[in-house]
Computed example of a mutant assay.
Amino acid sequence: MKKLLLILSLFYNSSFATDLEKKFKDFILDNPEIILESLENYERTKLKILEQESKEKIDDLKNLLYEKTGLYSGDPLSPHTIIEFLDYNCSYCKLLHKNIIKLIKEKNVKVIYKNFPILSADSIDFAKIAIILSKQNNEIFNKFHNFLLSSKKMPSMVEVEIFLSDQNIDLKKIKEMFEEKFVINSLELHKRIALELKLQGTPALIINNKLFFGYLDYNEIIKELNI
């Protein structure tokens, strides 16, 4: 008798569970917007958590993020500062560069650059050249920086050599400095900052201590700068 009751109990529970599962599936199929709403709520919650974490991390890294180097464009005394993580081989960095130039000209914005060369070996070499030039002369650095990011396709090293030659700079001498301590330290520092901020690509921007992943258009940047 006890065995019979146990079998009936298991059958009843299994039947009830199956019926409940079917009703649940039917309800979801009839109301798919619930799943979409749930996913949207999840993404919003996740984004808020990431924003809070990034704000705390940016505050911790403030001195390193705003360190004084020659890797910048615009007025060094500007009250409006943007930090940009970039790879010179990144197509979206090139697209963003048009907005950056406009911001510097029209809104007196200062942009601090952090190298995050992740796309190719050339990306690393171009970052090293940028670091070396920035230490020597900010004006020459900006010419080189604009040359790379204004090109529709990534310039070859031969084209870079010609460009630098026009600026009376010998690429061979620059390459001899590639492994100098200040170059390697700069690359490693920027990489460490990028990884601590959990960056997975470029561009990335920090505006008013808020982190943005990917491309932003001109008006979006203006809005975040509050100018």
Score class of each variant (00 low, 15 high):
Glu176Lys: 15
Ile100Trp: 02
Asn226Pro: 00
Lys94Ile: 03
Asn115Ser: 10
Lys68Met: 00
Phe116Ile: 01
Glu84Asp: 04
Ile193Trp: 12
Glu220Thr: 06
Leu171Ile: 14
Glu224Ile: 01
Leu164Arg: 04
Asn13Val: 12
Ile227Tyr: 12
Tyr12Ala: 14
Leu103Trp: 09
Ile58Asn: 07
Leu6Arg: 12
Ala194Cys: 10
Cys90Asp: 03
Ile49Phe: 13
Ile227Lys: 01
Ile35Ser: 13
Leu77Met: 09
Ile140Met: 06
Leu50Lys: 15
Leu189Phe: 02
Asn168Arg: 12
Ser123Glu: 01
Ser165Asn: 15
Lys175Val: 03
Asp59Ser: 09
Tyr12Asn: 10
Ser156Glu: 07
Lys173Trp: 00
Asn115Gln: 11
Tyr113Asn: 05
Leu65Ile: 14
Phe141Cys: 08
Ser78Gln: 01
Ile104Cys: 00
Cys90Asn: 05
Leu5Glu: 15
Phe85His: 11
Ser151Gly: 05
Thr18Glu: 12
Ile129Val: 12
Phe27Trp: 13
Ile118His: 10
His145Cys: 04
Leu148Pro: 04
Ile83Lys: 01
Phe141Ser: 08
Tyr113Lys: 06
Glu33Lys: 14
Leu29His: 08
Pro32Tyr: 13
Asp122Phe: 02
Lys110Glu: 01
His80Asn: 14
Lys46Ser: 11
Asn142Thr: 09
Ile101Phe: 03
Leu36Arg: 12
Lys48Val: 00
Asp60Phe: 09
Leu65Val: 06
Gly70Cys: 05
His145Asn: 15
Ile49Tyr: 11
Lys55Ser: 14
Lys57Val: 05
Glu161Pro: 01
Lys152Ile: 03
Leu164Gly: 05
Cys93Ser: 07
Phe11Asn: 13
Leu187Asn: 00
Lys57Ile: 07
Leu96Asp: 03
Lys94Asp: 02
Asn142Asp: 12
Asn168Pro: 08
Ile174Glu: 11
Asp19Asn: 11
Phe11Thr: 14
Leu4Ile: 14
Asn209Val: 01
Phe147Val: 06
Ser186Gln: 15
Leu5Ser: 07
Val160Ser: 10
Lys181Val: 04
Ile129His: 02
Leu64His: 06
Tyr218Ser: 06
Leu205Lys: 14
Lys107Val: 00
Leu20Lys: 15
Leu199Pro: 00
Leu77Ile: 02
Leu10Trp: 06
Arg192Asp: 15
Leu61Ser: 03
Lys48Asp: 07
Glu84Asn: 12
Ser91Gly: 05
Ala204Lys: 08
Ser38Phe: 13
Lys105Trp: 00
Ile162Lys: 13
Glu106Met: 02
Ile104Lys: 08
Asn31Met: 09
Ser54Met: 06
Arg192Ala: 13
Phe182Cys: 03
Asp170Ile: 09
Leu119Ile: 09
Leu197Met: 11
Tyr72Trp: 04
Leu65Thr: 05
Ser150Asn: 15
Arg44Phe: 09
Glu51Ile: 10
Lys128Leu: 00
Leu148His: 08
Glu56Ala: 11
Lys173Phe: 02
Ile129Thr: 08
Asp122Arg: 04
Tyr72Lys: 02
Arg192Gly: 01
Tyr88Lys: 08
Lys128Phe: 00
Tyr215Asp: 02
Ser165Tyr: 06
Phe163Met: 07
Leu20Met: 11
Ile184Cys: 08
Thr18Cys: 09
Tyr92Ile: 04
Met157Glu: 14
